[in-house]
Nucleic acid binder design. Sequence first.
DNA 1: TTGACGATAGTCT
DNA 2: GACTATCGTCAAC
Length: 213
Amino acid sequence: MIIKRPFLSYKNLEGQKLPLDFFLDDDVVTIAKSLLGKVLVSRVDNRHRAGVITEVEAYRAPEDKASHAYQNKKTKRTEVMFYEGGHAYIYLCYGIHHMFNIVTGPESVAHAVLIRSFEPLQGEEYMIEARNKKGLDYRLTSGPGCAGQALGAKAHMSGASLLRDLFWLEDRGIQITLSDIVATPRIGIDYAEEWADRPWRFVIKDHPWVSRR
DNA sequence: TTGACGATAGTCT
DNA sequence: GACTATCGTCAAC
């Protein structure tokens, strides 16, 4: 298979770090959509890695049954979700996968956006090593477990501020309009009953670097 | 202290 | 398409 990359046209190699304000909007669905096309950067073990976010899911506690913070359930794991927006919520799934989420909204509002896929931009060699892969292909960073592993994210890093120097987001001028976005139901949450059908998974239309290809 | 259960992915058929 | 590795979390005992 031919991998076309970069898929989008990238104007800037360096970008503007997203400020606190970006994460404080009360509407996590809107933030989820505006995260598409933003650049997620990690510097775990001083290894600079960056990728363009291509696939996300919004989780809106307290009413969203699919959220870990459903009914504002606060535990040692989920307390990070109640932080002010602009923090990373990282948790272990199936004992294997470290899932990377962005906490949004004001303090005590437990909204979060799961990063499901991104297109590698910088530090691909570190991602390949972290994933024990031979080379670059779509499976390197497509799917939430893969994305987290490629970033070097570990559950013990949960709570890290996205305004500091471990993980952060940048705007590098990539324009994603509403017509570039496809909305679908979220994946793997069949137990969430009526909330399972909410179209809160967002992907960049026709972008190859997304899960479930 | 215990046990059931995942916001999955990789391998094998 | 089916199967399963693998372990922290959380609620119940």
